[in-house]
Write a protein that binds this DNA or RNA. Structure first.
Length: 207
DNA sequence: CCGCCGATCTTT
DNA sequence: AAGATCGGCGGG
């Protein structure tokens, strides 16, 4: 196929390569489905995102930012493109990408991915995973597989020297993602703010 | 395959 | 006291 047709707006296609900050500067609810099939890279390890959840701020009772900024959630109120990493149930680190304009809290939780590169390193980081499909099919597992933890909290994905990178490899998001309620929350449980690649076995298994 | 439960610690 | 989770265990 050739170039786009001159004189027509054409489909919105992100250039391949690292995503610019402007990509994240919108409502998390809009960004979340666009993150599907993007590639998260940490050193030699990478995976394709197949499940995400949108969280807003003060207007979202399920959000950590619901009650305003705190030392933990401060980054969610800052500029887009930074990581919000939090400790879940005292045990697991979970990774979010801050979305929306500076001053407005919002983030997208990265819930699951398909390992692409550095799979040996991901296996070593996830000794409990008996099958490769279990390496990153949950937010805590994804974070552990890539070696992300509190040291990565607040880092700027869009900084040239960032140790964590988000890339478009030319794979578009699904036209019709699966949409459903967010997992593991007890407030705003009916909002369909969870997005995933239809039928992908690498999606998380909600309990 | 499914359901239950403990782990472990930050935040309220 | 609860929580944006996970893995092990027991039962079907």
């Amino acid at each position: 196929m050739g170039e786009h047709h001159r004189g027509h707006p054409g489909p919105i296609v992100t250039a391949r390569g690292r995503l610019p900050r402007t990509f994240f500067d919108d409502d998390p609810l809009e960004i979340a489905p666009r993150l599907l099939n993007k590639v998260l890279v940490v050193g030699g390890r990478s995976l394709r995102l197949v499940e995400v959840e949108a969280y807003r701020g003060t207007d979202d009772p399920a959000s950590h930012a619901h009650r305003g900024p705190t030392p933990r959630t401060e980054v969610m109120f800052g500029p887009p493109g930074h990581l919000y990493v939090y400790l879940s149930y005292g045990i697991h680190w979970c990774t979010n990408i801050v979305c929306g304009p500076d001053g407005v809290a919002g983030a997208v939780l990265l819930r699951a991915g398909i390992p692409l590169t550095g799979i040996e390193a991901q296996r070593l980081a996830r000794p409990a995973a008996r099958r490769d499909v279990d390496l990153a099919n949950g937010p805590g597992k994804l974070t552990q597989a890539l070696g992300i933890d509190d040291r990565h909290g607040g880092i700027d994905l869009c900084h040239p020297d960032s140790p964590v990178v988000l890339v478009d490899d030319g794979t578009p998001p699904p036209d019709r993602p699966d949409v459903g309620p967010r997992v593991g929350i007890s407030a705003a449980i009916d909002l369909p703010w969870r997005f995933s690649n239809p039928g992908d076995p690498h999606r998380s298994r909600p309990r």
